[in-house]
Amino acid sequence: MTLRLILTRHAKSDWDNPLDSDHSRPLSARGQGAAPRIGRWLADKGYIPQQALVSDATRTRQTWQCIAEMLPNAPEAAFDRYLYLAGPEVLLARLRHATAPSVMLIGHNPGIAEFAARLLPNPMPHPGFAGFPTCATLVAEFDHAAWTEIEFGTARGVDFIVPRELD
């Protein structure tokens, strides 16, 4: 059985309000434009998640909402406080609780970039992969029967995109 992970960093956030906490920062206008483009790209490529694990921060929630609007039969997201600013080990532990064969996980850097790099035995041949810019999306697959079996270094990179490539 093949498991598919769609790993996305939140879209560009708005830093204009100095009273916003990091957790409550919303998406900027640029982020609100980028996230739907990623959703449309996922739909066009047939990368449709059956489960969504999303950090509970405002910008990740909004990123999911913008992406989900472009997906056919988008699942209800599970907003998870443990994904907020999580590192690779926590991201792996939370992903191991997934139940659907195709899962989208939306989180934050630096954890998302480190997680992506550790999942694959070799980096994706894309100049943006190492930095994982805002709303960058990796599609990776695992040849395992259950998420509980996945380990670092066992994913196969299928696709990688950044929003500016969709302009």
Rank of each mutant, 00 (worst) to 15 (best):
L5E: 07
H108V: 05
I48H: 15
H97C: 10
F115Q: 01
G128Y: 13
P123K: 03
T99L: 08
G107I: 02
A68L: 08
E141T: 15
R40D: 08
F115E: 01
L27V: 11
A74H: 07
L166D: 07
A74K: 04
M1L: 05
T8V: 15
D16Q: 12
A77F: 10
D159C: 11
A11V: 07
Q65L: 12
D167K: 14
D167W: 11
A145C: 06
G111C: 08
T2S: 13
A140R: 08
A35K: 05
A52K: 05
A136H: 04
S55W: 06
R9N: 05
H108E: 10
W15R: 12
Y82V: 00
L91W: 01
K45Y: 02
R4F: 00
A146S: 12
Q32V: 07
F79N: 04
T99S: 14
P110T: 09
I106C: 09
F79H: 14
P127C: 04
I150Y: 02
A34P: 00
A136D: 07
D56S: 15
L3F: 00
T137P: 01
D22Q: 10
T2E: 12
A78K: 09
A29S: 11
V90C: 11
S102L: 03
L83Q: 06
E149C: 04
R164M: 08
L19A: 15
A35V: 06
M124D: 01
A146K: 06
I67P: 04
D14T: 10
V162G: 05
D16V: 02
L42D: 03
L166P: 11
G153E: 05
M70C: 13
Q51W: 04
R164N: 12
